[in-house]
């Protein structure tokens, strides 16, 4: 029986620790890898868009802590959990060297995910824009899939330095229209996501994940126009369970743990400067 205790444990779907098996490691452009994992012991648990996984990295020379990585996709037909990893240091480099068949010690699902309609999306909550930058686009793929399943109309606004920095574009296209911006103009509109006219369309809700300045700018725009907006933060963290209080974000309710009360926050809760 999962344990939920109001003041301390607010998780809707409590985490498990499990050895997942690596089904495939796909190399993506610009130092990214897609880890496709499966659970050999039956179905993956309930995982909500925006939740994340704390991955233990074995054999990394200088790192020690787990790596928090957002859920990129859950493929229920094949019982697969996808993690999109940007290789930035020793820990992620070691993850990128994993081989098919190896085991990965994972604690998941963690944190509070994105808003989802109760059942089917109501007409007034149907038009949703998902704005991602860099590897921050990762959780939006699963979110787009789940929103679409709930009957919402989804569009994506994805930004990157160049065309190659925009990952999984073909997969996003399954779930909605894809708008692009690149800093060098090699795809879509030249500039940042905030320069794209799609951001100004009539949306009932916006969700964003990526570099903080980008998310802050998107949230600013949404708040100005009275549109519901959620942001997924990725502060440095240790435990992933709300125990160590390292990953806090200043909010209107005080310092909250990104790992437990987040990573997804409503823009109205955050102190956006």
């Amino acid at each position: 029986m999962p344990i939920t205790i109001p003041h301390i444990n607010i998780m809707q779907n409590p985490p498990i620790q499990a050895d997942l098996h690596v089904v495939a490691v796909e190399t993506l452009p610009k130092g990214h890898v897609l880890l496709r994992l499966t659970s050999p012991e039956g179905s993956l648990p309930d995982i909500r868009p925006g939740q994340f996984v704390e991955v233990r990295v074995e054999g990394s020379p200088r790192t020690f802590l787990r790596r928090p990585i957002s859920v990129n996709f859950v493929d229920r037909d094949h019982n697969e959990l996808w993690l999109l990893v940007h290789i930035v240091g020793d820990g992620t480099r070691t993850l990128g060297r994993l081989k098919e068949g190896s085991k990965l010690d994972c604690i998941f699902p963690l944190g509070q995910g994105f808003w989802m309609p109760m059942d089917k999306a109501l007409p007034q909550e149907k038009r949703i824009l998902l704005v991602g930058g860099g590897v921050g686009t990762a959780p939006l793929l699963y979110y787009g899939h789940e929103l679409r399943k709930a009957g919402a109309e989804v569009a994506f606004l994805l930004g990157g330095r160049t065309k190659d920095d925009i990952l999984q574009r073909n997969l996003f296209e399954h779930y909605g229209e894809v708008h692009l911006t690149t800093e060098d103009g090699s795809a879509g509109v030249r500039g940042f996501v905030t320069h794209h006219p799609a951001l100004k369309d009539k949306w009932t809700r916006i969700a964003t994940c990526g570099p903080k300045p980008m998310m802050w700018a998107v949230a600013h725009e949404a708040l100005k126009r009275g549109i519901e907006c959620e942001l997924s933060l990725e502060n440095l963290m240790a435990c992933g369970l709300g125990a160590c209080l390292c990953c806090v974000e200043k909010t209107r309710r005080g310092n909250l743990c990104v790992c437990k009360e987040g990573p997804v926050f409503n823009a109205k809760e955050l102190i956006i400067d």
Partner: peptide, 18 residues
């Protein structure tokens, strides 16, 4: 507590200033 960032990973350990 203190402002973020409150932790930094080190060789075989971590620093915190919660």
């Amino acid at each position: 507590g203190n402002d973020y960032p409150r932790m930094a990973e080190t060789a075989s350990g971590m620093l915190n200033c919660v």
